[in-house]
């Protein structure tokens, strides 16, 4: 760190050492969003191909597809990673654009709740079909 760097003067040595930013969570949010993103690359390709093979298929074909352990596991992975990535991504958007603190808190909480509910609905549906 150069001596004349004025920008960092207001940061305490502890704050710098712990590497925490304005979100008070260090780089964990950033890192875990990337881990999910990497996993979503193959999962998304698989999902699109699987859906294209199911276009116009009757209900029973969808059930048979989800009953295969491979489809079920990949589908569950896709659901968990997608909603996790969704919650982190939309939270970043809200953190950036919602300035009023109460609104920011409530909107982030609402998004987190929505993600959990939607993810559970998808997971339970897949398990109900597949098990």
């Amino acid at each position: 760190m150069p001596e004349n760097s004025e920008v960092d003067i207001l940061r305490s040595p502890l704050g710098r050492a712990r590497g925490l930013g304005s979100a008070h969570a260090g780089f964990h949010h950033w890192w875990i969003e990337r881990v999910g993103a990497v996993a979503l690359v193959p999962l998304t390709i698989w999902f699109i191909v699987a859906l294209l093979r199911l276009v116009g298929a009757p209900h029973q074909a969808v059930i048979d597809w989800l009953r295969s352990p491979v489809s079920m596991v990949l589908m569950l992975l896709l659901i968990v990673t997608t909603f996790h990535h969704f919650s982190l991504g939309v939270q970043s958007v809200l953190d950036d654009y919602v300035h009023q603190p109460t609104m920011k808190l409530w909107s982030v909480l609402a998004i987190k709740a929505a993600c959990v509910v939607l993810a559970l609905l998808c997971i339970v549906s897949v398990l109900k079909i597949g098990l």
């Binding site: 909603f83 609905l121 109900k128």
Partner: peptide
């Protein structure tokens, strides 16, 4: 960011589709 939010909204359709598939022929 815009597309990220749009894809997030689209998960509602995915959820509906999966829940319907788990519910009944009629819902599907």
């Amino acid at each position: 960011r815009v597309t990220g939010c749009a894809v997030a909204v689209g998960t509602l359709l995915l959820t509906w589709w999966l829940v319907a598939a788990a519910t009944s022929d009629q819902a599907f």
